[in-house]
């Protein structure tokens, strides 16, 4: 059953990812990204990372994609007069991306037999949220604080970036 679900989610995710790249309409791209993230959240759930699946849907699908859609509509950046991509660019890009994927796949072969064991049964102690919370608030307490501060700085940065300052408009 997990194998079947894995295949389904994998095909769905890759198809939606291709949709992000090859859609000429920016809004359709954003909606494909949304579906792709839902597929990845399904894969996370399959790998017993329920918290991350929820966080991915809340943060990415909820906040990030909504922000993307909002900006696309604000800027009215549907496409423009030119084509979204050229034939030569597609060929060169596909070659580069194919080489990249081949390299990683060949490297993953060096995992040896550890790479091909089936999914081990989940450790029941790792499935409850308390275990993650304990890690976050003991071993990773400093990163949690730093990330909180980073979010504050990002918020202030966005406010400064979007504010119009008098006297800066004439700088070319």
């Amino acid at each position: 059953m997990p194998d079947l679900l894995f295949n389904l989610f994998a095909v769905f995710t890759v198809a939606c990812a291709l949709g992000v790249v090859f859609n000429r309409n920016a809004i359709a791209s954003a909606l494909c990204l949304l579906l792709c993230l839902v597929g990845v959240a399904g894969l996370f759930a399959l790998l017993d990372a329920m918290l991350l699946a929820f966080v991915l849907v809340f943060v990415y699908a909820g906040a990030v994609v909504a922000l993307f859609l909002f900006i696309i509509m604000l800027l009215d950046a549907q496409g423009g007069t030119r084509r979204a991509f050229g034939k030569l660019a597609v060929a060169a890009g596909a070659l580069a991306a194919g080489l990249l994927a081949t390299g990683v796949i060949l490297l993953s072969g060096s995992l040896g037999p550890a790479g091909s064991v089936p999914l081990p049964p989940p450790d029941p102690s790792l499935l409850n949220l308390g275990e993650t919370a304990e890690l976050l608030f003991t071993l990773y307490l400093l990163p949690v604080e730093v990330v909180g501060f980073l979010l504050l700085i990002a918020m202030l940065g966005v406010i400064v970036l979007s504010k119009r300052f008098a006297g800066l408009e004439d700088i070319k």
């Binding site: 194998d3 079947l4 994998a10 993953s108 995992l111 550890a114 091909s116 064991v117 089936p118 999914l119």
Partner: peptide, 8 residues
């Protein structure tokens, strides 16, 4: 059908 392994 590809089994769910680390490599996959």
């Amino acid at each position: 059908m590809i089994p769910l392994t680390l490599n996959a």
